[in-house]
């Protein structure tokens, strides 16, 4: 499948910012099932994008610009070819052994409720079935709702609400898996809706868990499925903070207003890539 992505993040400030610095994790890499045909990042300011590979193998770009900055737009355009691998991630850059991903974080700490929920779904000796039970049940028990949670909501807080967005589903899944001693990690990316919805308000997120014999396997609890050719994988880490598309800081710039437009569409075969 050929998927075209246009992702625009626009910051506007009531009072112009003196200085802005951001680190972007907005660049996919190739692995089995994902080939990046074209990819381009534009920032509409006088700045240089400094590329690095972070500790998890993600590509980052850091830029800084000095103001006055009234509005700032980060625009991503790309075309990615995908194929279905039944959720199994092969050929991705791995910078850590799986054991690292048992490490707890503030956002993915399992509280008593999550621990009990995880334990009730454990199939001893069958990690894959355990993970599928978690996937199915979380998709059923948690309601997708973008109102009550935010980017700093913890797994435990979202689980108590039984509501949240894809980030919350992923954090809860990770917390539960790690509690059962299964290495698990956070993945940020994009998702092509099957129903033809093209315009979205945000990117997507899901979890990956490590299964002996298979390696890393994706679990998209918000959609109740393993990732397919509709998923574009961008960055991974222990939690959202390691994989966030944009982490930034600014001086001045009070009254920030953020607009995010994500368009994920199937590229028609006739379209020529420039």
């Amino acid at each position: 499948m050929r998927i075209r992505i246009a992702h625009e993040t626009i910051y506007s400030y009531a009072v112009p910012a003196h200085a802005v610095i951001q680190t972007l994790r907005l660049t996919p890499r190739n692995y089995e099932g994902q080939h990046v045909a074209t990819w381009r990042i534009d920032v509409d300011q006088d700045c240089r994008l400094d590329a690095h590979e972070d500790a998890f193998g993600n590509i980052t770009h850091t830029f800084s610009c000095t103001g006055p900055v009234q509005t700032l737009t980060v625009r991503v355009d790309g075309l990615v070819e995908t194929s279905d691998t039944a959720g199994v991630v092969r050929g991705a850059i791995e910078r850590f052994p799986p054991g690292l991903y048992l490490r707890g974080t503030d956002l993915t700490t399992a509280d008593g409720e999550i621990r009990a929920y995880a334990e009730a779904r454990e199939r001893p000796g069958d990690r894959l079935s355990t993970l599928h039970a978690l996937l199915d049940d979380l998709a059923r028990d948690i309601t997708f709702d973008k109102d009550p949670t935010h980017s700093a909501t913890t797994a435990a807080e979202a689980f108590a609400l039984k509501r949240g967005v894809c980030q919350d589903f992923a954090h809860i899944f990770i917390a539960a898996a790690r509690h059962l001693n299964i290495p698990a990690r956070y993945v940020g990316g994009y998702f092509l809706h099957a129903d033809g919805t093209v315009d979205q308000e945000a990117g997507h997120a899901w979890a990956e868990a490590h299964v002996e014999g298979l390696g890393w396997v994706g679990f998209d609890a918000a959609n109740g499925q393993c990732p397919t050719e509709q998923h574009i994988r961008i960055a991974c880490g222990l939690d959202y903070l390691n994989a966030a598309p944009i982490r930034g800081s600014r001086h001045g710039g009070e009254g920030e207003f953020l607009t995010v437009k994500v368009v994920v569409d199937q590229a028609s075969r006739q379209v020529q890539v420039q």
Binding site: D54, A55, F56, R95, F96, L100, R103, G104, N242
Partner: peptide
């Protein structure tokens, strides 16, 4: 790896 003082970011 489980040590709070270990910084995966330095890997």
């Amino acid at each position: 790896y489980q040590n709070p003082a270990f910084r995966p970011e330095m890997n």
